[in-house]
Design a protein around this nucleic acid. Structure first.
Lengths: 339, 339
DNA sequence: GTGAAAGCGCTAACAG
DNA sequence: CTGTTAGCGCTTTCAC
């Protein structure tokens, strides 16, 4: 029998078991597990490491969190991770958090204010070290986080939000560039398929569309307001097609809506971009594979996620809150009329 | 001054503060917070509730987790939540978990075995109460979870996995039904665009395709093996188009691949379903909005997620492991040739 | 370089 | 019905 007599410790093995096995104190085990704060003699360290391996010891995160007051976990609240843009964002947030050793508690609010509030509250109760919130509201109610002194950053938030850290995208400039591009193709009647937010605040994309039109001396095209979904876009497309003043181009405020519009257009036998040109916003992967591929304003999801996470983790009490706005870049494909 | 003298407790307020404020013991606070295990006089309860509200008390989840040995959290490991099917699944899992009061720690493995392992390990260390794993492997290495006695269920896992709880879909029957449908349209040369797993085990969808062909006395069409992505499908489409024996129909093992194939077909000017018919697998929302809309085998994501969560939460030690296989239903749209 | 011990916030026996 | 208290597993100060 070469195997040492490891009496299988009943139940999970704790730091105490390791200490006993290695013949040291529990403190020493802590020192080697955490690489500090005290130095340990190489020989002792080896003994401990060996004990850890043999016993299959895994530190208890809950105990650690209790002691340290930090769970090394952050919470993410997004409207819907089935939306390609948000799933991309969520993935990027997870990566950025993991990089720093944080795990991600994901919650969907389904665009529902009550659910958003519930999720935030729940996250606060779970001692997360911070919350990244993509709110349906312009000024989310964050009393729970505030009273728990949990840092927040608003993600995908492009409006003013004094007092909050936020990261968003330049909606106005992004939308403007898309509409200008459509204008460059010779269009003079450009509709807007505007997504409706629960919060119902004024959206920069509408402003950008307006500005581009005005700058070119063009009249306001028709606006149809609809959900930020494929279904919403589909409905918008049909309405636009039926309207007396049928536009020759459409700017949609999300790729998902554009995909819906595309379907409506195809069903009606109108050719894109021949009869009606189309551009949208988000730059999700789906936009690249629609037919025709969508010209879209691409949001730098990865960069935004990184910024949100580091703003959150770096957000030490007393920091000035800052509002980061990233530029969005027009990604030209074929739906606009480019070859 | 009508406001009672609430000396703002420095730092987070604990159960002790509440007890002091309400003039009761900490145990009583516990009883009212948890609704048990002891009864509390209504008057006392009211006092405590009031104290809780006034002080803004929120129980510390870490302490609770430490004491109870349960974090009320489950971990989910999926290949990629940017894949519409997985993002749908993740959303469904989150809903099902939330229903039972559990939060969801989300991790992506990016189809990468090392990352999958790392994520599982990390989740185990975080004292999750269970892990739902959509592994790249047929028989994932779960030593970390086993030694930590953390229950697992394999999700989206349709192969045999003795000893594990698993929930999956009937790949063979699903694929077969799609291919049979294509055969019903008169096709005799039906290609397979087969997704490649890292695990590289035999996939039931290939089997289903084969069976349908054999049952109809048809020769095996060409197979092209490619990634489970839009890009993979695109490459597959081009290869199929270029091959000497160009098929008249294609069965793709995922919607994403079908979307890629669609792009290749459109670019080549071949009409769908006129020149080449197409059917795929998953039933994601994206399939409904492609052009033409995809006939696809729909996986019951919601039901699968529910089953996985209840198998996990209900998974008491000693339970027999069971393997749930859900039927997948053919969703007929236009890409197959139906009007 | 190592160990003893206090205590993080909470639950639930046990005692009154 | 309410209070006292031990202890969950861990970190870290303080003493040796």
């Amino acid at each position: 029998m070469t195997t040492p007599t490891v009496q299988a410790p009943r139940g999970p093995v704790t730091r105490k078991d390791v200490a006993r096995y290695a013949g040291v104190s529990t403190a020493v085990v802590s020192y080697v597990v955490n690489g500090g704060p005290k130095k340990v003699a190489p020989a002792t360290e080896a003994k401990v490491q060996d004990a850890i391996r043999r016993l299959g010891y895994r530190p208890n995160a809950a105990a650690r969190a209790l002691k340290l007051g930090s769970s090394e976990t952050i919470g993410l609240v997004i409207p819907d991770n089935s939306n390609p843009f948000f799933s991309l964002l969520a993935h990027a947030v997870e990566d950025a958090a993991a990089e720093l050793g944080y795990a991600l508690l994901l919650t969907n609010s389904d665009g529902n204010l009550a659910k958003e509030l519930r999720n935030v509250r729940n996250l606060a109760a779970r001692q997360v070290d911070g919350v990244i919130l993509s709110s349906v509201l312009m000024e989310p109610g964050l009393t729970d986080l505030e009273s728990a002194e949990i840092p927040v950053v608003l993600l995908n938030h492009s409006a003013e939000a004094p007092g909050f850290n936020s990261v968003g995208v330049d909606l106005v400039a992004g939308a403007k560039s898309a509409v200008e591009h459509l204008i460059g193709h010779g269009h003079t009647s450009i509709a807007l398929a505007m997504g409706t937010n629960t919060g119902n605040y004024y959206d920069g994309r509408e402003e950008g569309w307006l500005q581009a039109l005005a700058a070119a001396g063009l009249p306001e095209g028709p606006i149809v307001r609809t959900a930020f979904t494929r279904e919403g876009g589909y409905a918008a497309g049909k309405r636009l097609l039926a309207s007396a003043s049928r536009p020759t181009a459409i700017f949609a405020t999300s790729d998902l809506q554009a995909v819906g519009i595309l379907r409506a257009l195809h069903e009606a036998g109108v050719s894109v971009p021949g009869d009606i040109a189309l551009a949208s916003f988000d730059g999700s992967a789906e936009a690249e594979y629609s037919w025709p591929p969508l010209t879209t304003v691409k949001q730098p999801a990865k960069a935004m996620a990184d910024a949100a996470v580091s703003a959150l983790i770096g957000a030490h009490r007393g920091h000035e809150s800052e509002q980061l706005i990233f530029p969005a870049e027009l990604q030209i494909r074929q739906s606009c009329g480019c070859p």
